[in-house]
Nucleic acid binder design. Structure first.
Length: 285
DNA sequence: AACTCAACCTGGCGGC
DNA sequence: TGCCGCCAGGTTGAGT
């Protein structure tokens, strides 16, 4: 579910809290998805600690003191929730509420020496965890394209991805091998920001349009990160109410509603790459 | 090689 | 406490 901005937010929040805390145990429910042998996974984690947390695209990388790496992918419905007494921070899928932990969707629990806990919840069980060594990490890292927020993400790099491509720009934006971190929500948002229809073939964009799309991809992600993600939920108090940040999305999931631009029309929904895609037929050309 | 699409899994919601 | 079909912010392998 989460895209780059949401994953970045939870990464930052967790990093502030769990780095260098001794892990006393890890509990795996029967429905947890672990790509290693369970016994190996537990052995690597127990009595170890995370010295840093990194991210590439939508993949979170927990650096272990043992120089191995625990990869976490939240996919559609994964959540990471850290609880230290009444201080609870949560990132990822916003449902269900966090009144009680663990709940029926809790798949993995890490326990730290100071009594705090990290929960991995996942309704649909697409998300996973995996421990790899340096070589394995590099293999995986190499599969990702540059992120739009990366300094090396130049217009020339962007242009090359789109030239001669027969697929729609929206689908091209989501190709993680080429551009890391854009998912189904932000792909629609980026096309809206650039005022270009998401169904346009990548190879048919003019230089001017490509430039607009390039700038939009950077801007949309940067703004989203600044806003701590789209539906990122933040809990300061276990008894507090769920405080989802107000959505600032402009087109996603707004089918039939009025475009937020003054000269806009009614938002339309089409399917591209098998996914719902939203755009304004009037202000997006 | 490039591209499309169903499949993975589970719950929520709208329509009937 | 109705049932059914569709949809869901991701990735990937099989098929064309």
């Amino acid at each position: 579910m989460p895209e780059l901005p949401e994953v970045e937010t939870i990464k930052q929040d967790l990093k502030e809290r769990i780095v260098n805390k001794q892990i006393t145990s890890v509990l795996l429910s029967k429905k947890a998805i672990i790509k290693n042998k369970r016994i190996d996974f537990i052995k690597e984690i127990k009595n170890n600690k995370f010295t840093d947390i990194l991210r590439i695209g939508k993949l979170i990388i927990f650096v272990l003191a043992s120089k191995k790496y625990m990869l976490v992918h939240l996919k559609m419905t994964g959540q990471l929730i850290y609880q230290q007494g009444k201080d609870i921070i949560a990132g990822g899928h916003p449902e269900p509420d966090l009144e009680k932990l663990p709940n029926k969707f809790t798949r993995i629990i890490f326990e730290f020496k100071n009594g705090s806990k990290l929960y991995f919840n996942d309704i649909r069980r697409f998300g996973y965890m995996q421990i790899v060594d340096e070589v394995g990490l590099n293999e995986i890292k190499n599969k990702f394209g540059l992120e739009p927020i990366d300094k090396k993400f130049t217009f020339e790099y962007f242009q090359k991805i789109f030239e001669n491509k027969n697929k729609s720009i929206k689908v091209a934006l989501m190709d993680q091998d080429k551009i890391a971190g854009i998912g189904n929500i932000y792909a629609s948002e980026i096309c809206f920001e650039a005022k270009i229809k998401p169904a346009r073939k990548a190879k048919n964009l003019s230089i001017k349009e490509l430039k607009a799309l390039y700038l939009a991809s950077k801007k949309v992600l940067q703004v989203a990160i600044k806003n701590r993600g789209t539906t990122f939920s933040d809990y300061v108090d276990a008894t507090g109410h769920a405080g989802y940040n107000i959505s600032f999305l402009k087109v996603y999931d707004r089918k039939g509603m009025k475009c937020k631009r003054r000269d806009g029309g009614i938002i339309n929904k089409i399917i591209l790459g098998g996914r719902g895609s939203f755009y304004c037929p009037k202000c997006q050309k």
